[in-house]
Amino acid sequence: MTDNAARVIGRMFSDISIAIDAHKDHLTALDGAIGDADHGITMSLGFNAVTNELAGMDLDHVAASAVLASAAAAFLNAVGASTGPLYASAFLQAAKVLEKSETLSLENHVEMIVAMTAGIQERGKGQRGDKTMLDAWIPATEAAIKAQNDGADVRVLWNEVIHAAEAGANATRSMVAARGRAARLGERSLGHVDPGAASAVIILRAMKNRLDFS
């Protein structure tokens, strides 16, 4: 039996939570180099709150968009920092995509990636090159749109997305932070990967592993 869309989204969040927990120390170490060393802890806290919230939902009888909206609320209520509002906005925008059609079609994969990036950008007022999570999300979005226009199938599309996100995250090493706590370091932020970009790759990879089988 194939899982319904709500259940796939539910499993996707549990995958993200497991992946974030597995990389918690690494993210914290990255943040320690240029920030306050709480990124791994904060992300883990947020996604654990999401999975706890979703565990209390009957995923056979709710819409996938409602799962995303609940995830957004749970993340926002659990996480302060800047990641709380940023990812809450991302999931809320993704929920709006699925409200229009509650399917996990390839078109909706692309639209969700586009919407999540737009949510983060709108909330944080960030740009590409600021050395933030957007340096992974924006290239990932561009890659998704390009792959879609090229007629790629779901596997190829997600491979392109992950490839672009990873390249974007790695490129933050040579950027001087313009936003967030690292921005105050100026040139001393050079040479370090942005922890928000690194966790964005982890999230996208977990999304890929769940969605490209759906």
Binding site: D36, A37, D38, L76, G80, S82
Partner: peptide
């Protein structure tokens, strides 16, 4: 009140 070194939530 936020977590250690971390902004409180919007709800708080």
């Amino acid at each position: 009140v936020g977590e250690l070194f971390s902004s409180p939530t919007a709800k708080s």
